[in-house]
Amino acid sequence: MIQGRVWKFGSDINTDLILPTPVIFKPPEEQPRWVFSANRPGWAQGVQPGDVIVAARNFGTGSGRPAARVLKDLGIACVVAESINGLFFRNCVNYALPALECAGIHDAFDELDVAEIDFERATVRNRRTGRALAGRPWPLSLRRILEAGGLLALLRTEGYLGPVVESGTVGTAPMAGP
């Protein structure tokens, strides 16, 4: 069971807001603090591990960049939205970030309500109001990728990928910004 404070977002929240382009080139451990720096400066600093994002339509629209990974690294336990962009959803599967499509979710929560999520059954309950909604559950094949810790972990286990290279060796392009 996932239980977390809810942060609310509207429709069409895009990947460039989640992970701004210049941040893609920063060391992965520095990336999470830039999430939503253009539209909600300071927000990432207030997120606690286990928090949940509740959004309206078309969450994660945009590019193939690892926006799901950076939300996971920030500590987001689950994204629940009226609808989720197909590419972003696939990245959620592959980076092992629970994400549910759930009709009516946006109106069922206020900011900082607590969501109780049974991910396997895809049910989401608002602890304050008691209201429960049913989302679209993940099929077993996708849950397996999540449980394996994501697709890259799976590829490593199956011998397609070598070990993780430590990020100390990766670049640190300068970035202007907030």
Binding site: P28, R65, P66, G159, Y160, L161, P163, V164, V170, G171
Partner: peptide, 12 residues
């Protein structure tokens, strides 16, 4: 780009 996602080698 290692910071983007693939911090490992593709073996085959």
């Amino acid at each position: 780009v290692p910071t983007s996602f693939l911090r490992s080698e593709i073996l085959r």
